[in-house]
Computed example of a mutant assay.
Amino acid sequence: MILDVDIRHEQGPFTLQARFHSTGRLTAIFGPSGSGKTTLVNAIGGLLRPTFGRIVINDRTLVDTKRNIFIPKHKRRVGYVFQEGRLFPHMSVRQNMLFGRWFTPKRERISDFSAVVDLLGIAHLLDRRPATLSGGEKQRVAIGRALLADPALLLMDEPLASLDDARKAEIYPYIERLRDEGGVPIVLVSHSVAEIARLSTSVVVLSNGRVVATGAPSEILQRTNLLTEMGSAEAGALVQTRVLGHDDSYGLTTLQTKAGTLTVPRLNLAVDTLLRVRLRARDIMLSVNEPEGLSALNVLPARVFAVGVADGASVDVTLDCGGDILVARITRKSVERLNLAPGKALYAIIKSVAFDAETLAAVPLVNSRRED
């Protein structure tokens, strides 16, 4: 997908001024509440007409105020999934799914009903009514309904915001499959660091109605200054790993990184599966000597790449671990006591219990492999 946005929109006292270019399969619009995320996706989807600017998707101009172009929402071929499923309560899941086809001319209907049902794992739900579904199941049905309209782009406005952690864990793999196998580019609105780390291939960061950064999630998450409003405790780094093997006697899995191995709680994944792992800055300790007698199983050799500016009592230290860039948040006192400076060799220590469902996710590559 190629998405070009350059718009300005005034809505009461709030002004959105957004300019960015994205080629990602899943572009996350990220920022705190009130930053303009929903206003931006509503402009892309045609739910509002921006005051000024242009929006282009794959060389198709949807909005150009200078040329007086504004394609109405029903002609944009843009699917929309809201925070709540918004399913018709009097219809079965099957009927709700097929309703999406009504907005697409028969000659343009490409998507296969059975394939969409299989992709989202909802075959066992087809004869049920929305009132009997969990929050995660409702969202999967809503996604399926949007896909069956054969959209050129799928907009998802915080689709997990109303779900608890268990339901989020249920739906994450389906959004990953949709990203990797669905063939439809996605724009996902989120204010969750965990969501953009796990799901996105590119990120647009909004703050107070302005785009303050764009880039790959690995680049964005290292810039802890961008996450201040979201809770800097979630900042860190993304590392690509590969499953080396499992230790069933202790319920552990070993992952290969560029700098060495990581031991994490047992994962139901095949050997050689590729994983994207989020290492939070708050979960990393540093030692100038190779540690001995520790309970932590993960010790990676590293070299200081940069020492950040102090933020109160803490400092972010950027590390080069064999080519993987990590960030550790430690105290100013520790920086002075360890005499940290760019180029200094040391060890990064990560506890195995720091890894959870939000920090481990499939790499967005078609050839990554999972167990059934």
Rank of each mutant, 00 (worst) to 15 (best):
Val81Leu: 09
His90Phe: 08
Lys106Ala: 14
Tyr80Leu: 14
Asn96Leu: 03
Arg101Gly: 01
Gln95Trp: 02
Glu108Thr: 02
Val116Lys: 00
Asp118Met: 09
Arg94Cys: 08
Leu98Ala: 12
Leu87Cys: 00
Ser92Asp: 08
Ser114Phe: 14
Pro105Lys: 06
Asp112Cys: 14
Val117Ile: 13
Phe103Asn: 15
Glu84His: 13
Arg94Ile: 13
Gly79His: 01
Ser92Gln: 05
Lys75Glu: 15
Trp102Gln: 11
Gln95Leu: 00
Pro105Asn: 08
Phe88Leu: 14
Gly79Asp: 03
Val117Asp: 01
Val81His: 01
Thr104Val: 15
Phe113Pro: 05
Leu119Trp: 00
Arg101Tyr: 00
Lys75Ala: 15
Arg94Gly: 01
Phe82Trp: 07
Gln83Tyr: 06
His90Met: 07
Ala115Arg: 11
Gly121Asp: 05
Phe113Ala: 07
Gly85Lys: 00
Met91Trp: 07
Met97Pro: 00
Lys75Ile: 06
Arg76Gln: 04
Ala115Lys: 15
Ser92Pro: 03
Phe82Val: 04
Arg94Ala: 10
Arg77Phe: 06
Arg109Trp: 05
Tyr80Ala: 02
Arg109Leu: 12
Ser111Gly: 11
Gln95Val: 06
Thr104Pro: 04
Leu119Met: 12
His90Asp: 14
Ser111Ala: 13
Arg109Ser: 09
Val93Ser: 02
Glu84Trp: 10
Gln83Pro: 04
Tyr80Cys: 03
Val78Thr: 05
Ser92Lys: 11
Gly85Glu: 02
Phe88Trp: 11
Lys106Pro: 11
Arg101Cys: 02
Thr104Trp: 04
Ser111His: 08
Tyr80Val: 10
Gly79Ser: 08
Ser111Leu: 10
Val93Leu: 07
Phe82Ile: 05
Trp102His: 15
Arg76Met: 11
Val78Asp: 02
Thr104Lys: 09
Phe99Gly: 03
Met97Thr: 04
Gly85Val: 03
Arg77Cys: 05
Gly121Arg: 04
Arg86Cys: 15
Glu84Cys: 07
Arg94Ser: 12
Leu119Arg: 10
Gly100Leu: 04
Glu84Arg: 13
Gly100Ile: 03
Asp118Trp: 09
Arg77Pro: 04
Asp112Phe: 05
Pro89Leu: 09
Gly85Ile: 04
Gly85Gln: 01
Arg86Gln: 13
Trp102Ile: 12
Met91Cys: 11
Ile110Gln: 15
Val81Arg: 00
Phe103Pro: 07
Gln83Leu: 02
Leu119Ile: 09
Asn96Val: 13
Ser92Val: 11
Arg76Thr: 03
Leu120Trp: 05
Val81Asn: 02
Phe82Asn: 05
Pro89Val: 02
Arg107Ala: 15
Gly85Arg: 00
Gly79Ala: 04
Arg86Ile: 14
Ser92Arg: 12
Glu84Asn: 14
Ile110Pro: 05
Ala115Pro: 08
Ser111Gln: 12
Phe82Gln: 05
Phe103Leu: 11
Ser111Arg: 15
Pro105Met: 06
Phe99Thr: 06
Arg101Phe: 01
Asn96Arg: 03
Lys75Trp: 14
Gln83Phe: 10
Pro105Ala: 01
Ser92Phe: 02
Met97Ala: 06
Leu98Cys: 10
Val78Asn: 03
Asp112Ser: 10
Val78Lys: 01
Asn96Trp: 00
Arg86Met: 09
Gly100Thr: 05
Leu87Thr: 05
Met91Glu: 04
Phe113Gln: 08
Trp102Glu: 11
Phe113Asp: 15
Val116Ile: 12
Val81Tyr: 01
Gln95Tyr: 01
Arg77Leu: 10
Leu120Cys: 11
Ser111Val: 15
Leu120Arg: 01
Val78Gln: 00
Ala115Asp: 14
Arg86Glu: 09
